[in-house]
Nucleic acid binder design. Sequence first.
DNA 1: CCTTGACTCTCCACTTACTGGAGGCTGTAT
DNA 2: ATACAGCCTCCAGTAAGTGGAGAGTCAAGG
Lengths: 271, 271
Amino acid sequence: MMKIGFFSKLSQVPVKTLRYYDEIGLLKPLKIDPFTGCRYYSVSQLSRLNRILALKDLSLSLDQIAHLLAEGLPVEQLRGMLRLKEIEIEEEMKVEQEKLARVAARLRQIEQENEMSNYDIVIKKVDAQEIASLREIIPAYPEQGQLWEELEGVLGEKKIKPIAPCFTLYHADEPEIDAEVCEPIAKNGTVLEHPRVKSRSLQGAEMATLIHHGPFATLSNAYEALLKWIEGNGYRINGPYREIYLQSPSESGNQQDHDVITEIQFPVEKI
Amino acid sequence: MMKIGFFSKLSQVPVKTLRYYDEIGLLKPLKIDPFTGCRYYSVSQLSRLNRILALKDLSLSLDQIAHLLAEGLPVEQLRGMLRLKEIEIEEEMKVEQEKLARVAARLRQIEQENEMSNYDIVIKKVDAQEIASLREIIPAYPEQGQLWEELEGVLGEKKIKPIAPCFTLYHADEPEIDAEVCEPIAKNGTVLEHPRVKSRSLQGAEMATLIHHGPFATLSNAYEALLKWIEGNGYRINGPYREIYLQSPSESGNQQDHDVITEIQFPVEKI
DNA sequence: CCTTGACTCTCCACTTACTGGAGGCTGTAT
DNA sequence: ATACAGCCTCCAGTAAGTGGAGAGTCAAGG
């Protein structure tokens, strides 16, 4: 029978932690003096504490440990938990490794350019989205203008308001540019009756994205950076990419070209 | 200029998180309506948010990110941080890997024995310790009895009280047993004047430990388990080991043999 | 005999990066 | 008129402790 300080010295576990284990019911002292409130532990409780520490070391949570100990340490359950833990740790290591690769890649990039890249590439899931769109083969990227006018015309006529920034879906760049100009619309079951403008829904997807400030003519830098990143970080493009016109030059008269803001999204998957 | 919900949709960052970033000053909305309290964001703030997400992805803390952004993203500093991060992640991966090894080892052990081992091995740092001790070559382990009597006698004579459980330090088992019986004492500068009993201080060390319940005769199982663990988990013994008599058979008359509690500690280092 | 130091206790706040909910406001659509 | 969506603030909770304040008890030292 000893007080908490001595027990702490024997076990090399801080007093605070022992009190915490008492509080959550993981390791109750053998007895508590009802007058002083002092906790008294016995030497034999060291084994339980050691068992707790050993399980904790296998990165089980205190909660799990408490359950295991409460149920008399059923081998079956422990085995199951450890199997899960094994998978979990492997998973985590994979994540860490990828993170390490990204850090290393960024470092290399800094060393090379000796300045911050202007682009911050982010992976994000984008939701499924209902769109009204018009798809056509065009000879050059700026030729979309007419498509946009046609699309806006039809939507205006039908009094349909876009609910998010418009974008172009590029299904192919070579040998010809296969572009689909899109306006996100609310989903309400009705089908758009029109020979050229159709409504459909896009699936959600994981996207590698970046945001570009400046005129369309400088977009190629952004594409270069993004494609390089995708290749360098072990992803593969698996669908048509999007060019989202967050702030287009025409939106307000006093906007300079460098206020044009465009987001590029490539749907990707891990190799 | 848009409200928080739209900004959240564009960035795919939850509204709650955006409010949180506002609260900690990481990403303040461009303006707040003084009457409704509504937050208004501009499209161009998406880049800052993206930058935040990109840095977060490199597992910098929000605090670090806030500092970096506040100081105009100095390349030097970022480089330093990333280098540190790199080392940190590598460190973490090593830890994970060892944990994985331990989990796997435990699983193998369970498969083999199909029951929980009675021993829970724990690595812990033990503190430096002042001791009074008596060292001698003995023909067999139980022959320590006389040494203990002699040590206790001297300490009793000098009115020195041990401050922790006594233990034996084994410097060698072969070809002869080189044992040192020890009593932890308080450090107070004075030297113990005695021809055979000396005081000295033991350094702190990292120890692989387990706790054994039962008579000394069954200690060999504990040693076997501990040595197997040390070998199987990539450690190496680097000093004399200790046998700590937490609860000795002589301590109280009514104690049965199975109430004897002994801790074994091997000083180890990672290979 | 008084003070100091060593232990002990309880209770509270703080850590990270959010997440969930309650309760209340306004503006729009039915 | 009412339902709803969207916005607001404030509060609580997460895991596993850590740190500190303030109070009580005990023994040793001056």
